[in-house]
């Protein structure tokens, strides 16, 4: 029974996340890929575990202002309010990473579900869902995010919602177009002949064949959300200024760029490292899945 479906299934570079083809032998090829994935892991560990090892309070204004890096007790010096830069850099990465990861995951999940639904059901469902996505895509993504933050207000939760609204349509369009291509294939027909229901076909047959491209898109979106969320914070629209946050720290440090460029350059460098690593990791996934040469 199932062998019939398996025989009709497409034999392409990948067949989904549960398949043995998604092995580490296919990803992580070459030093650039290692560096990219390594940077992502290292930054995550640094931000999640790092604050546990730093005793200084990132908010405490208890030291001499603008100490240079390398001062005893303040490895990266202090900022203009006498706060420990190392503690702030480590603590400021948390809201940044949370927004990036959550917004990317939510966009991928919501967008892919909508796209799968539209492509699978077709007809008016397709029309309604995709026209709604078209409306969002008729605006520059940055504008959507800024307007949403303006409506909802700042803060971690609202930023996640705002960025998700701006990124989900891309996933919906991708998943819908891929799904439309898949539903007419023989393996879907075979599965239907076997009496499988729509849910089974959509989630167990079509989704695994769509998931490779979606995963690649997810990795590149991680870079986009990194840029977008830090830009919102930089503009003073995202995270509130009371807690340390990389995007906001870049802006605050910019006023002292003549004398203490490190205050803004260190968080800027970390944001950049994360975004660049995410894009190289996405390239690595793309190569691993033979999904396209772009």
């Amino acid at each position: 029974m199932t062998s019939l479906v398996a025989a009709a299934a497409p034999r392409r570079g990948t067949t989904g996340w549960l398949s043995a083809r998604w092995s580490a032998r296919r990803v992580l090829r070459g030093p650039v890929a290692w560096l990219a994935w390594g940077t992502l892991v290292a930054l995550s560990v640094l931000v999640l575990v790092g604050p546990l090892f730093v005793t200084a309070d990132p908010q405490a204004q208890d030291s001499v202002a603008l100490l240079p890096a390398g001062t005893a007790g303040h490895l990266l010096g202090t900022d203009d309010l006498g706060r420990d830069v190392l503690a702030r850099v480590l603590a400021g990465g948390r809201p940044f990473l949370v927004v990036c990861a959550a917004a990317t995951a939510a966009s991928a999940l919501i967008g892919t579900s909508l796209g799968l639904l539209a492509g699978f059901r077709g007809g008016w469902v397709d029309a309604v869902v995709m026209r709604a996505m078209d409306v969002l895509l008729a605006f520059p993504l940055v504008l959507v995010a800024i307007l949403m933050v303006a409506v909802l207000g700042g803060g971690t939760g609202n930023m996640i919602v705002a960025i998700t609204i701006s990124q989900a349509p891309t996933f919906a369009r991708l998943a819908r177009n891929l799904t439309v291509g898949e539903v007419s294939r023989d393996y879907v027909r075979a599965s239907r002949c076997l009496g499988h229901g729509s849910w089974h076909i959509a989630l167990r047959e079509v989704l695994p064949n769509v998931s490779g491209q979606v995963l690649v898109q997810t990795t590149s979106t991680l870079a986009v959300t990194a840029g977008l969320s830090s830009a919102l914070s930089y503009l003073g629209l995202g995270q509130d200024a009371s807690a340390p946050d990389w995007g906001y720290m870049v802006r605050a440090g910019q006023e002292l760029i003549f004398s203490n460029p490190g205050l803004s350059l260190i968080p800027a460098l970390l944001i950049t490292a994360f975004a660049v690593a995410a894009n190289f990791a996405g390239d690595d996934l793309r190569d691993a899945t033979d999904l396209g040469r772009l």
């Binding site: 870079a223 990194a226 840029g227 830090s230 830009a231 930089y234 870049v250 910019q254 760029i257 803004s264 350059l265 800027a268 944001i271 950049t272 975004a275 660049v276 995410a278 894009n279 190289f280």
Partner: peptide, 9 residues
Amino acid sequence: SVPWFVVAL
């Protein structure tokens, strides 16, 4: 990959 405001900075 580099965010706009970082390039600007």
